[in-house]
Design a protein around this nucleic acid. Structure first.
Length: 295
DNA sequence: AACTTACTTAAGTCTCCAGC
DNA sequence: GCTGGAGACTTAAGTAAGTT
């Protein structure tokens, strides 16, 4: 048998996703490439590993066996790489970082500083919404996670490393735009554009409104901060967003930050990792940089 | 019935490497 | 240094199943 490590790696991804397309996305390949690799592996092994019933894929018994073996081998290789990079210190290694989408405006600057200080370290940044990030956390897919607040029920170690002020934005022609020290009660009935339930800024907005006895008037729910920004510019409502998300629009005057008491809501960015996780030198160095930046 | 999604196949490109 | 084969990948076109 001449199965290659690459074939096993690709097969493992397909077995995990039960989809050639999703495995291809995960591996940054095209779907036919993934398909042919798995087909070649099957030919090498001389057995079908995957069967298709209708549109769904299933692992055969041989597939389950190969998958278990592939996981062990790939895990062993990962441990070997980790040990080797420890031996090499910070001259080599990998930092896998995941950040909530709101942080995507702040994260690159942090990474830039880190990459200049440690050019031998390969850095991967995944950006997703809060739910996606927590799923990745649960699956232990990254070294460190950057998010607004760390859920209490999460078994994580964390610390705050930067301020994250949330501003209340409106288009410049909005009646409240010219006013100063606006009372929260004047927001009653204002239509809001918000992120999906469970997002950090959504939670902060609802908490603020509730604290002032206001019921949220949700006009539009959008899944991305950029979309919310455009909706507010278009006059569909007002919104609470991280200041870094709208810094450029505020500067250009396409949006204004309303001077409502209580705003900006000052929150902090947190970095988190699974409690007890043995962090690689690269991750430890990144944490040290973050600690240095805020203190 | 038309459309969308997902898998399959064929043909071709690119890169690496052994052998001359 | 050149050449040809192998391996890994992409593009393009096609088919089948599920959805609207």
């Amino acid at each position: 048998m001449r199965a290659s490590l690459r074939q096993l790696q690709i097969f493992e991804a397909v077995a995990r996703e039960l989809s050639y397309t999703r495995a291809a996305e995960r591996l940054h390949l095209t779907q036919p490439a993934v398909f042919t690799q798995v087909r070649t592996l099957e030919e090498q092994i001389g057995a079908d590993l995957i069967e298709r019933i209708g549109k769904r894929l299933y692992l055969t018994e041989a597939g389950e066996t190969v998958r278990a073996a592939a996981r062990e081998m790939l895990g062993e290789i990962e441990r070997m790489e980790a040990r080797l990079s420890e031996l090499k210190g910070l001259s080599a290694g990998r930092l896998r970082l995941a950040a909530v989408s709101t942080a995507q405006y702040d994260a690159p600057a942090l990474l830039g500083t880190f990459c200049r200080a440690h050019p031998g370290i390969e850095v991967a940044l995944k950006v997703g919404n809060r739910g996606e990030l927590l799923a990745r956390f649960a699956a232990n897919e990254d070294d460190l996670y950057i998010l607004g607040t760390v859920p209490e029920e999460l078994d994580a170690e964390s610390f705050a490393f930067a301020e994250n002020p949330l501003v209340l934005i409106a288009p410049p022609e909005h009646p409240l735009a010219k006013l100063h020290t606006i009372a929260p009660a004047q927001l009653a009935g204002e239509p809001f554009v918000m992120r999906e339930t469970g997002s950090g800024t959504r939670i902060a907005t609802e908490r603020y409104l509730a604290a002032h006895g206001l019921a949220p008037n949700l006009r539009l729910e959008l899944g991305a901060n950029a979309a919310i920004r455009q909706a507010v510019i278009a006059g569909l409502g007002i919104a609470v967003l991280s200041r870094s998300t709208v810094a450029l629009e505020l500067e250009l005057g396409r949006l204004v930050a309303l001077d409502v008491s209580g705003f900006p809501i000052v929150r902090a960015w947190h970095v988190a990792w699974p409690r007890g996780k043995r962090l690689a030198p690269a991750a430890q160095a990144f944490l040290a940089q973050l600690r240095g930046a805020f203190s």
